[in-house]
């Protein structure tokens, strides 16, 4: 490592914080444009969906155990269970599936 680690860390922290802080501090008024409002309405669901599939299938030691976790999470979420229940259910499903697979 030729460069100073702490300068790297400072750059990482600074760039990341600026990205997060600029819109929240600069956009102070309610956005009236129906298009922009609609756009922002869909952003979270689109981002989280794209981040989950297909990445979830590679998050465990086996694509089958991951699929078990995925299906259990979908069912629990469909039944409107809370975040912790769905997350824990998915983990338990993976654990059980892997005890047969691995």
């Amino acid at each position: 490592m030729g460069n100073n680690v702490y300068i790297y860390i400072l750059i990482m922290a600074l760039v990341t914080f600026l990205i997060r802080a600029l819109p929240l501090t600069l956009i102070r008024k309610e956005i009236k444009s129906p298009f922009v409002r609609s756009f922002l309405y869909y952003v979270p669901y689109v981002t989280l969906s794209a981040m989950t599939v297909p990445a979830i299938f590679y998050a465990t030691r086996s694509i089958y155990s991951a699929a078990a976790g995925f299906i259990v999470a979908l069912i629990l979420a469909f039944m409107r269970r809370g975040l912790l229940t769905v997350a824990a259910g998915a983990c338990i499903a993976v654990f059980i599936a892997e005890s047969f697979l691995v």
Binding site: Y42, P44, Y45, L48, S49, M51, T52, A55, I56, A59, T60, R61, S65, A66, G69, F70, A73, L74, L76, A77, F78, R80, R81, G82, L83, T85, V86, A87, A88, G89, A90, C91, I92, V94, F95, E98, S99, V102
Partner: peptide, 28 residues
């Protein structure tokens, strides 16, 4: 085995955030 199982925790949360509103709103 535990690390592997915990690997889906965050995705499970994402699913829990997206699915219930998607049930209410077909557009989502």
């Amino acid at each position: 085995a535990l690390i592997s199982a915990l690997g889906v925790a965050l995705y499970g949360m994402f699913i829990a955030i997206v699915v219930p509103p998607a049930r209410n709103d077909r557009n989502i």
